[in-house]
Computed example of a mutant assay.
Amino acid sequence: PHEDHIGSLDAIINHFDVDAVYMPKIMHTSKTFEDVLDAVANKGLKIKSPDPGDTIDFNGLEIEVLGPQREYKDFNNNSIVLKVNAGETAFLFTGDAEETAEKDILQADYDLQADVLKVGHHGSSTSSSQAFLQAVKPKYAVISVGVGNSYHHPEEEALQRLQSIGAEIYRTDLQGNIVCTTDGKNIAFNCNSVSGTEVYADAARNNTPAEEVVYIANKKSKKFHLESCASLPDEENRIYLEDREEAISLGYTPCGTCKP
């Protein structure tokens, strides 16, 4: 339910003929999430939460639901993971799923091989584990990521793992809009750079942070901090949040040191 994933979903529902809406079994108190619920209600639709192993037929495409395998405490691992089979080609969409969810999907023993992988969590090092990538064996890896984002995505560890399996990497921060097409046998990419992408490409390559505030919450202490705080938790205990409102709505309290 994070804004960078559903921020325009209400507009899509309002302006297109939508037959079904699929979302994981999690709720959020943000205005963005409420806008989506309003759009669903106004269209007389009901939200469906698919189960692992479900298949959805969409105009001759077979869409397999691979995750989430269970309910998780954090939003990222609750991402719906989909494998789209198009003729002899396959595409894997992972949302923000991280290594914990990846391990559960691996244990479910699906056929994960896919030609194109939409890289998990914008290229975060907490996703795209080596074991998962070896099972997927993607020829192409697409990273949806903002130019000069303050999360420093994609992270070098994830990029190195993708390179180690021989995947050709496409990034929206460097190449703008990425359109991938298939005829069921062949796959083609067309990158149409968005306005300003070239200007900021060097900054993106160097992971230059954008001028925005990042909040980092501690899973254990239930405190949230500024990115510059001296009391940041270890990486495995971190949750990255988009805004102060989200942190408070999830039950985190401000750090007394950095006073976010």
Rank of each mutant, 00 (worst) to 15 (best):
L37P: 04
R161V: 02
Q175A: 10
A247H: 00
S49G: 04
Y151P: 00
P52G: 10
A210M: 12
S49H: 13
H122W: 08
A131E: 14
K25P: 03
L174Y: 08
L162Y: 07
I169G: 05
D51F: 15
D54C: 13
N186S: 15
E212Q: 11
H225E: 04
A204F: 15
I13F: 10
N237Q: 12
T89F: 00
H122E: 14
S125E: 12
L241K: 00
V119A: 09
V81W: 02
E3N: 12
E99C: 04
S193H: 14
F16H: 13
A131L: 12
T197Y: 07
V142G: 01
A41S: 14
H121Q: 04
G60V: 12
S49W: 05
F224M: 03
N186Y: 14
R161G: 03
I165L: 11
L66N: 01
E102P: 09
K185F: 12
A114Y: 03
K185E: 14
K103L: 04
E198H: 14
A167W: 01
I248Q: 11
H2Q: 10
T32K: 03
N85S: 15
A167K: 06
D4F: 06
E98G: 02
C180F: 09
K73H: 08
L61V: 08
R205D: 13
M23Y: 09
D183W: 14
A204G: 15
S49E: 05
N186W: 08
G120L: 02
G44Q: 07
N186F: 09
G95N: 01
C229A: 06
A188Y: 10
R244E: 15
G176V: 00
D74L: 02
G7I: 11
Q134R: 13
V65S: 08
N78Y: 00
E157P: 07
A247I: 00
K73E: 02
S150W: 10
I143H: 03
Y252C: 01
A141N: 05
S8Y: 14
Y240H: 04
T182W: 11
Y140D: 00
Y170T: 04
T182Y: 11
G148K: 12
Q113W: 07
V116I: 12
T257Y: 15
H152S: 14
E227T: 10
F132Y: 10
E168R: 13
L106C: 09
Y151H: 08
G256W: 07
V213T: 15
Y22C: 05
L162G: 04
V147N: 08
A131N: 09
S129E: 07
